[in-house]
Design a protein around this nucleic acid. Sequence first.
DNA 1: GTCTATAGCTGGATAGAC
DNA 2: GTCTATCCAGCTATAGAC
Lengths: 200, 200
Amino acid sequence: MPSAGAVARRRVHDGDSATRTALLDAAEALLLEEGYAAVTSRRLAAKAGTNSALLYYYFANMDDLFVALFRRGSERSFARLEQALDSPQPLWAMWGLIHDYSSTALTMEFMALSNHRKAIRAEIGAASKRFRQLQLKALTRVLEGYGVDPLEWPPVSIIILMSGVSRFMLIEEEFGVRAGHPETVALVERHIEALEGPRC
Amino acid sequence: MPSAGAVARRRVHDGDSATRTALLDAAEALLLEEGYAAVTSRRLAAKAGTNSALLYYYFANMDDLFVALFRRGSERSFARLEQALDSPQPLWAMWGLIHDYSSTALTMEFMALSNHRKAIRAEIGAASKRFRQLQLKALTRVLEGYGVDPLEWPPVSIIILMSGVSRFMLIEEEFGVRAGHPETVALVERHIEALEGPRC
DNA sequence: GTCTATAGCTGGATAGAC
DNA sequence: GTCTATCCAGCTATAGAC
């Protein structure tokens, strides 16, 4: 574990290279398959077909690697969100994005990881805010178009409700709890359908 | 890290003793203050004013200690829930219990911990199911009394909505995201008030 | 019941050859 | 850029004295 005040002394090679990408890919795969505790310098280097010393050539330390991996993931998510909000059925598209395990699993793993990697905490906060702002800007316009009263149903609350209920069910499923999930998904989707018509 | 198939060979002393309780208290405090990564046998023993060898006198291994701590916490939560559901305003009482950081923080820490301690996963799943059943049994009766249509608003979905939105906001707050939270809390509380009158 | 001492392992990070 | 070899720290768990 790096000491709290650790500073990267080595020079880091930010550019793209096949090895660097392989290391990030291996880290992402390990993170999803076995959880962040499995992502150690040795195991991840082995999975990428190299050794841990090379990892430290590309990244100053493990924190650095995790931050790079998180940013790569956020950029992808952000692009997917922009595309979803641009669809003719933005509520359905957003719900599809939110209530999908594979797009949420990485985020949740990073949240768990952030418990003992403070560098990651700040990254998650910043990305969440940016994500929320984009969702909010689009949804405010969309809901206004559907004639939804923003005092009774603030757009930001719609986002939080959809995200919260979805995330909660995904987490529960990881622990084998499924009671009430189908009914709740149906409830959410009834309300989306009332505003936006059946999903196309 | 214990090997996957590790079996507890030592005899374990389950009964209450001041030292055992001190160890559990220290573990709980460390878990909340610094996250589960800080809960190592050495640090926790030091915090309890003893040494790690004694920890292994009371618990077969670290997994065992975490399971014992989780069970102690669940029993307390369960008792609080029973009391809440027995109040004259069960919706308000349940919401108060759900949307309270201190009662949720430990659960979230255990969920993060369960990523690399499988023994904990099973415990969380079992406790969640038990918790849900109690909530559901009480809420079904209460909502029926308020004349809420169970086809449009299934009681189990009300529970999931309340839990999900609350948990989501508590997590976001840990990452410094607060946008839309007051509006959303107000929204939930308006709906509770419509059914149960102002909170007493 | 409680302690000291320590075995055995794993991980982060670096040195230095090629 | 990539490797082998290695240092050092911290952790789980045990042995054995008192």
